[in-house]
Design a protein around this nucleic acid. Structure first.
Lengths: 243, 243
DNA sequence: ACGTGTCTGTGCGCTATCGCACAGCCGATC
DNA sequence: GATCGGCTGTGCGATAGCGCACAGACACGT
């Protein structure tokens, strides 16, 4: 554990960082701090001014809205293709959302001031971040649509696929209760839907550990929302960035 | 009809334009074209490259997603506080959404190239537009939450209030079918909910014409989503811009 | 005055999801 | 290897919203 493998520590594991051209990225390198992102870690809270932005590499971060009564709903998900903390450069400095680590892993953080300094040069970094933000907007919009029109079963498929796209293997560590919080539904509903997917031989589920065994089947079972979001990410972000 | 009153033609009726400091706004003035925005006019279509952006003054524009099967859902609404066509400066040049005039009125349009020229100066206009975009993102996120958790009754209240905030008087021209398309629900559902609001003496409804007679009552009846969005607009946008 | 098309109201069975209660089960800990 | 806490499965009744069918009401053009 003393020598950290360079594979794990390479900022370019984050596709957004990987897409930053060299003079710009070089300016950041000394300031990019590798961080552990354990399950449940809150990266920022609703209304709090950000001091860091995060570039996940192997972790996945959920942007949630938590209601007064404690119920919650996922707005969007950010993995190795993105950055957590867009409200910083968008100018608001805080959001009404909470950012929570949904799948443990690693990432890099960068001081807000360092990011803003580069952003204000109005070079490629600004344009890259804005394009990423548009992709994120698309995901949020599609989440709204999906919440309105599609069944829990389809939404679970979409959610699994979005997560899978941001992970290495084909399994994820996630209890049904947590999934229910993300999707904003009852835990029992997730049990039902996951049971159906298991019966259909699409996933295997065992105590907080989901293994996808038929990805194509999930894609066929989900609604159009997944495909729409994925296509838009592919279109908006550089090729190496494709999720 | 020959002499158009300057009141109707003042770009500063759009609060975003009003917030642009003078040297910058002066550069735009010759290019700001007043436009009629009749009900149902489509300002841009999913996936189409934008040639203009729009600054509504008295009109309200809905950002909709239309699904393969024809069903639709409103993602956000833009009125005199905003701009239609953010994907232009965000870098994507198109969105998956459609922009439709939801309430007839007027506005200004500006050639994409003129907007981008100013945006690329990286001055106050860039920062203003990005802050507005963050407000819009908040609205989209809250739409997703609201679609997930709140009743049609509450959502109708939210929708009426958001529309009212962007209009002069306290009445709006809007059939139940159109409202249903926006909210992504059945027309009969809107009939029920509107009937309930009428019975509660909050609105008066007659053939495509809604009059709000108790605004406070609506605010008390709606979910937290309305308040959250409004507060965030107030926080992010200059005072004169408050919706 | 009349017809026509659009808008609004109502009824009815259906389904997805909720809310709640509880039982079984695994896995870590002592 | 017994216990305990968190995870998962299941079974109710309740309800919000859907899909469909149809009837009344109003607006407007001829």
């Amino acid at each position: 554990m003393i020598t950290r493998s360079s594979r794990m520590m390479d900022p370019r594991l984050n596709r957004l960082l990987a897409a930053i051209p060299n003079p710009e990225l070089a300016r950041w390198t000394p300031f990019l701090e590798p961080v552990e992102l354990p399950l449940g870690r809150v990266l920022y809270e609703s209304g709090v001014r950000l001091s860091y932005v995060y570039f996940p590499t192997t972790a996945i971060v959920s942007l949630l809205y938590v209601m007064n009564d404690g119920a919650s709903a996922e707005i969007a998900v950010v993995g190795h293709e993105g950055i957590v903390g867009i409200s910083l450069f968008m100018g608001g400095e805080s959001t009404i959302n909470r950012a929570v680590v949904q799948s443990a892993g690693r990432g890099f953080r960068l001081r807000a001031s360092v990011l803003m300094q580069e952003f204000n040069r109005s070079g490629p970094v600004l344009h890259l971040l804005l394009r990423y933000t548009q992709a994120l907007i698309t995901q949020m919009a599609q989440t709204a649509v999906c919440n309105r029109h599609h069944t829990l079963d389809q939404q679970l498929c979409r959610w699994l696929l979005l997560s899978l796209d941001r992970l290495d293997g084909n399994s994820l560590v996630m209890t049904q209760q947590l999934i229910a919080n993300m999707l904003g539904v009852r835990r029992e509903g997730v049990t039902d839907a996951a049971g159906a997917l298991q019966k259909a031989e699409l996933i295997r589920y065992q105590r907080g550990n989901i293994t996808v065994i038929n990805r194509d089947g999930l894609e066929r079972r989900t609604c159009e929302c997944y495909r729409v979001v994925k296509q838009e990410y592919d279109r908006l972000l550089p090729a190496t960035l494709a999720t």
